[in-house]
Amino acid sequence: MTVLEQDCPRRVDAKASFAMRSGEHGLGWLAVSPAMLLLVGLLFGPVAAVVLFSLTDWQLGSFSFHFIGTANFSTLFTDPTFWKALSNTLIYAAIVVPGTVLLGLVVALLIEASPGLRGFYRAAHFLPVMSTMSAMAIVWGSMLHPTIGLVNRALVTMGMSGVNWLRDERTALLALAVIGIWQGFGFAMVLFVSGLKAVPQQLYDAAAVDGADGILDRLRFVTLPMLGPVTMFVVILTAKRSFEVFDSVRVLTQGGPNYASEVLLHRLYTESFDFLHMGYGAALTVVYLAIIVLLTLTQARLLEQRVHYS
């Protein structure tokens, strides 16, 4: 009897705590439900719809469609234009990512090194980030105009012959890449400036006492390693943005001449909304999404190992 009496309250406790726990459980789901709904409605739902469409021959405006299996994908992978767009996107990213990171870093270092006018320089370099790309693309279009553009005029003044930047197969993609760097490096700069502020002064002091007090040694032993996490963030962000390049292509070259500046997102848009091939466009989107996910995962995995020290 005594045992039972002693045992009783504990069992009640256990029951109560179970009830409380399941109650807490329900409350937990209730609490996350708004976020879950938004996530499903805005992210998972549309992705599922796109995957579904990619298996159909739906054309924008028509009221019926048929499931055609993976036919869209086989067309896609045998389409030379798709491969051209993919390789162009990769080349674009290969120029824009290092260009943005390097320029952003150099400008951040220069701004931090100079005592005066820091705020002004930061704001000036950040302006392109704030501006609308399609509007700025028009400005760039006039600058790169073959006869009256500022760039060619400058070249001619220096005794060189002008180039038809956006209408020449050899330069169209390069010109777009330069515009991409121009637009993005301000953002990288702001991130690097904040990263630089977090580098402890004692590390620079230690480097000075240890004899690593030259600019390059300081960069190598203190600044760059301490900027590792920021750099990783900037690289991933810039890579993602360069895969998203669209506005400047649409406004300035429409992917031409002869697909020399065709990129994935522009291809996707053209197929879906110019040619109204929604099914095919959806297939392109699926491939595009897969590339983005793969890219982010790989970068994070590769860089994570090298930039976090504790």
């Binding site: 402890p200 004692q202 002091d205 230690a206 000075a208 006492v209 390693p225």
Partner: peptide, 29 residues
């Protein structure tokens, strides 16, 4: 300059280079 003064310094926060191994930290000077 500090490196020419033949002095060594130990800091409150240790100020070790986080990306280098202990060996490389000690070997740096």
């Amino acid at each position: 300059r500090p490196k020419e003064r033949d002095v060594a310094m130990v800091f409150q926060s240790y100020a070790l280079y986080p990306h280098l191994s202990v060996f490389d930290n000690v070997a740096l000077p």
